[in-house]
Design a protein around this nucleic acid. Sequence first.
DNA 1: GCTTAGGTTCAAAATTTATTGAAACTTCAG
DNA 2: CTGAAGTTTCAATAAATTTTGAACCTAAGC
Lengths: 173, 173
Amino acid sequence: MKPPSEKSAGRRKSRPSFEPLKPHEIELADFFVRMAGILGVPRSVAEIYALLYVTSGPLDFDHIQGRLGMSKGSVSQGLKFLRDHEMILSVKEKGARRERWQPTPSLAASLVALLRSQVLPALEQAQPGLQRVLADAEQRGAQPEVIERLTRLNRWNSRALELAPLLLPPPGA
Amino acid sequence: MKPPSEKSAGRRKSRPSFEPLKPHEIELADFFVRMAGILGVPRSVAEIYALLYVTSGPLDFDHIQGRLGMSKGSVSQGLKFLRDHEMILSVKEKGARRERWQPTPSLAASLVALLRSQVLPALEQAQPGLQRVLADAEQRGAQPEVIERLTRLNRWNSRALELAPLLLPPPGA
DNA sequence: GCTTAGGTTCAAAATTTATTGAAACTTCAG
DNA sequence: CTGAAGTTTCAATAAATTTTGAACCTAAGC
């Protein structure tokens, strides 16, 4: 028994009216939302990913919006985020107008890309500042204890920057 | 030239009036704040840690509050957080009333403790739910593609839980 | 060229998270 | 026991983040 459809005055575009998430889908979404929360990724993004993850085929914009009951803006931004971090792929069929999305094959790779994009810039930006702080401390004849700490911090930072490209190969490897 | 001190009517307790952070201290604090941000740790906590980190001796409550220009509540909560995550140590001198704080020797260990406390509970809590979602999918005869994904997710989760105690030994190891 | 499906942008509104400060609690010295 | 230093609690407020939705692009088809 289909729902009577929203006041279809003259039947214009047969708005599909999507189903809300089923319990097992909600449960998975919750998992992704919690995990994403640790990295500061917003709920809506995690929900989109989760939906694509439990769905076998690729989904288009309207399906995502409909099933998650989310605004256009959020879907657009969420897809952008996931795209930028290489967590989803577009599977545009030939001759078709709309794009359809599905998760990247490897969730592991996706997470790595995400981490990369969050941590690396911070490390890079910090580099000169940290060096300056250390130099400053040495020059002012700070306590050896403090110098030691700052030195270690600098070493860490440099090493992390050296290692990063190996562990987290940039787009193209 | 000391500041004239706040309306000292009769000189009661010689309120110390702490210096604001110096440029190099601010720079380091910024670094910690940014890094902390990635893990969702609030600014005030990162600032406290940074201050202890660039200071040679241990600091007491009032010094922290004074130099950071922060409310009592924030300092108390911040210290609690850092304590709970084993990132700072109390060095109460014998016969003294107040506690004095300094960073734990190993920043690495501190970070590990922090991660541990954020990630582990999420993984643990997720375990049963994820298994349920997978069982559900199998029972409903979901697409092999989806089953495959959910299986992998479960494997990941279990492995992470097995490995966790090795890499991140719980308090006492 | 026009029209429009399909998406994006972005300022305003809603929500979440962090900070404050006054009151309450604890503990030690006397 | 009393007094007060030292700290914690927590409701109220402030700040930061997320979501929304309506206006605005942009390319495809006619």
